[in-house]
């Protein structure tokens, strides 16, 4: 069975994005082993000169390295990815490169009707940066709008259309992971470029 790391894209105690990932964890239990990862205790990224990474970052990096794929669920703050998630990605590309060529699926939940559309677009752009260079599943937005009323008491999605959509996207993601494994011709070069990406020299 495939092993996935699901990153909760916020440091808030209450989060419908966390709820969405918990819902997926249960709903897809027969298809993949999904482990939730929190970023809320990460210290503020400040480009430490000695490149020492906090232990929590190293742990998550190791988990991502070992996983077949990553799901990131992002809220939207001020039309953009929350600082806490930007912070996590800053750390996870500072002298370490766990995301290079890693299959990533993006989801997002919002209280309003837009479902974090702008944050997701920004997140795609971030994951495309040379020092992250993830393999983001194309054409696959999952935007969960009105997220406060989207779940039942057992944390299942109420809306059938949403469930269908998520089922489809998740099945695609399983295949996308396999396809991505074949897109390996540039992998060594990508890894090398990511490593050569220097926050100082660029």
């Amino acid at each position: 069975m495939k092993k996935l790391i699901a990153i909760v894209g916020t440091n808030s105690d209450q989060s419908t994005n966390r709820q969405l990932l918990q819902c997926m964890q249960k709903h897809f239990a027969n298809d993949a082993e999904i482990e939730l990862a929190e970023i809320k205790d990460f210290p503020m990224f400040n480009k430490p000169v000695d490149k020492t990474l906090p232990e929590c970052i190293q742990k998550l990096a190791a988990k991502i390295d070992a996983a077949d794929g990553v799901i990131i669920s992002t809220p939207e703050y001020d039309h953009a990815v929350p600082a806490a998630l930007i912070n996590a990605l800053n750390w996870l590309s500072y002298g370490i490169y766990p995301f290079v060529d890693k299959p990533v699926m993006i989801t997002g939940a919002s209280y309003g009707v837009l479902g974090s559309s702008r944050a997701q677009a920004q997140l795609r752009q971030m994951l495309d940066a040379p020092e992250l260079r993830a393999r983001i599943m194309p054409s696959s937005e999952f935007l969960l709008a009105n997220s406060l009323t989207a779940f039942d008491a057992d944390n299942r999605l109420l809306d059938r259309e949403s469930v269908k959509k998520l089922d489809g996207l998740f099945a695609d993601f399983m295949i996308f992971i396999d396809i991505t494994a074949q897109l390996n011709h540039a992998h060594n070069q990508n890894k090398k470029e990511a490593k050569e990406f220097s926050w100082d020299k660029l």
Binding site: A83, N87, N90
Partner: peptide, 18 residues
């Protein structure tokens, strides 16, 4: 610019200020 976007520290401040 970090990771093709604004650094976390600046975004965080703007979140406090909104």
């Amino acid at each position: 610019e970090h990771n093709h976007t604004v650094p976390a520290g600046l975004k965080s401040v703007l979140e406090w200020l909104s």
